[in-house]
Design a binder for these strands. Sequence first.
DNA 1: GTGGTCTAGACCACG
DNA 2: GTGGTCTAGACCACC
Lengths: 127, 127, 127, 127
Amino acid sequence: MFITIDEKDRRPIYLQVVDEIKTLIARGELREGTQLPPVRQVAANLGVNLNTIATAYRELQEEGLISIKHGAGAVVTRSRANTINSDDELRRPLRGALTQFVLAGLSSKEILEIVAEELKQLVKGAN
Amino acid sequence: MFITIDEKDRRPIYLQVVDEIKTLIARGELREGTQLPPVRQVAANLGVNLNTIATAYRELQEEGLISIKHGAGAVVTRSRANTINSDDELRRPLRGALTQFVLAGLSSKEILEIVAEELKQLVKGAN
Amino acid sequence: MFITIDEKDRRPIYLQVVDEIKTLIARGELREGTQLPPVRQVAANLGVNLNTIATAYRELQEEGLISIKHGAGAVVTRSRANTINSDDELRRPLRGALTQFVLAGLSSKEILEIVAEELKQLVKGAN
Amino acid sequence: MFITIDEKDRRPIYLQVVDEIKTLIARGELREGTQLPPVRQVAANLGVNLNTIATAYRELQEEGLISIKHGAGAVVTRSRANTINSDDELRRPLRGALTQFVLAGLSSKEILEIVAEELKQLVKGAN
DNA sequence: GTGGTCTAGACCACG
DNA sequence: GTGGTCTAGACCACC
């Protein structure tokens, strides 16, 4: 399982890890029932503190994506969900992201092509 | 100029303000040369600290979207076309937003429709 | 003897087992002198680690509710009347439970009715 | 605002703090809109680490009882709630607490008296 | 061996 | 001055 963190990214590391794992689940690379690597192992791989990864795992558990069992590791509990958020909670970040592209001067057509491309990348090889 | 902040939104207030103004610029509601309202006025309207709005304006200036002149207020300096955003800096938030939709169980087709809809909303009435 | 564990329950499994057995004793379904099923059998039934059940039994022994004899299994040694629990140790969890009901907006009268109901359920068929 | 932690209590400190504050809210001693003391101040008072209290506050926020604003402290957002848990999530701890009393040999009548007493203590002076 | 909690202390972000 | 994040490392609880 490949996770990378970006020094230049201003988001906290634990959130980067959360998002990376979310993406892996969304892409189907981490399926329901898959065991996640131990907190300590991920921390060592990324060269960050144990607690940072523990925080990320906890967040994923709170969102219902994984299940952590004390002493028995963490397991993916959902590959594609249905319990989530209000529509608006989903759309706000999308609107923000699209705004950036508009500001960059891209046309709607160009933006839609980029979205399609990213989306294809995201669901590649998924069920 | 209507700006609103969302209590439930976990992002810092100043970033919410930044994004709202960006959206207004992207939509063409704030055009090049337009004077932004004084920091104090915006702060009073939203009921937030003066520094919060000042930080937002500073951020917008650093991104090159507005120009702040001491004693003369802030002016929009660009309506479109960005300079700094690397391709990846632009795409990362998009990827994050799309991931949430995929996790929510929506099909690529459905997601693209939502994106098209949001995009239409965003450029409506723009130049 | 029916024991179940709840995946969603955040308490450790061994404590869930302890509490279930305590309830069975309190309800009189497990009487003094009754042989408890072997650790291995319970573990197999619940699909959990052997040590988890062993820990539960050990805890029950420390509280004086059962007696574990090497090679001879575990036996219930008491149906009622405790020794260790200080008054405060007993009341703290009660207070916590009641707090939740108050926070949920229930009136004292409603809460007392629920308590009476649960209590009736608990001692039903006991000696 | 008086909070105390109990060395002998086996629950983690941050949970003790959470429960104490919940009780204060349930009793009406902390009302909606009340500002909570700064994390650092509580930590200093109790002689524990800053992070321990921060974790407690975060937990309270996740349960919707308080609202934390970065740089602006924490505020109680609910005095008596209605959004909470499933009925079973509420009753399970109650059942556990009552079981202990039954095991201690108390009669239903005695237990009900204790519950009434605790409840009276809990809502004393509340609206 | 796994995750959970806590500490002491640093540095950053926010209002 | 407020809370947020992170580190390094200890010790405990659980399976």
